[in-house]
């Protein structure tokens, strides 16, 4: 099983799979299949892909503890970068296709959910920048603590979804439950952090 993960074919498969959502939405847009407000549909789709990909990445470290799946660890960086890729497309399409520049600053003030999303994006940006092997080496121990910020990103992303709800919380609750589940696997880490804070 783990040799399967190590093959070049598996790597190529995962790499091309990562572009599948983009290919799908570009195809749909070209067909005029995005409806009356295509930019909004595009931004929402890219956001959903980004948050689901983020959940997938967070699921990888609990999953690799299952012996047969330990090989997936190889794709963690790639998947992490895909999260950043879709988050960037989400932010770029929001900024260039959807936002009203005349009221942009005012909109940011009144739209707290944009702020929450922005926090998540800044975190993802800093993680993406420090993802090359050179940076891992350079940062040493600090790399790990920096990359724990991914927990901040997922919480901010879920808040970003929650604050946009107008009446039905089903989708937001789904993301929140998923995030809580994935964070619960890191319970021992959070406990340790809390204790060390108390001691100091």
């Amino acid at each position: 099983m783990s040799s399967l993960f190590r093959s070049k074919v598996a790597w190529l498969l995962c790499f091309s799979l990562g572009f599948a959502p983009l290919a799908y939405i570009v195809y749909l847009a070209a067909q005029g299949g995005l409806g009356a407000e295509p930019a909004k549909a595009l931004v929402e789709f890219l956001g959903e892909v980004a948050i689901l990909a983020l959940m997938l990445v967070l699921a990888m470290s609990p999953l690799r503890k299952i012996k047969q799946l330990s090989g997936i660890n190889r794709f963690r960086r790639m998947f992490g970068l895909f999260v950043f890729f879709y988050a960037s497309l989400h932010v770029a399409s929001y900024a260039f296709l959807l936002v009203d520049w005349q009221n942009f600053i005012e909109d940011i003030y009144s739209r707290l959910y944009v702020m929450a999303g922005f926090v998540a994006f800044i975190v993802l940006l800093s993680l993406a920048v420090t993802s090359p092997k050179v940076m891992v080496k350079k940062l040493g121990k600090r790399w790990k603590s920096l990359h724990r910020l991914v927990y901040v990103a997922v919480i901010a992303a879920v808040i970003h979804v929650f604050w946009q709800v107008r009446s039905d919380y089903t989708e937001a609750a789904f993301y929140a439950a998923l995030a809580l589940l994935l964070l619960s696997f890191r319970f021992s880490y959070f406990k340790r952090r809390l204790f060390s804070v108390q001691r100091s």
Binding site: E37, P38, L97, S110
Partner: peptide, 22 residues
Amino acid sequence: DHPRWSQKRERRLPNSLFSPNR
């Protein structure tokens, strides 16, 4: 304004990907 967004302008639909028709 709505507490979460501005009501000063509107997007007249349908719009296109590259022009929000505001």
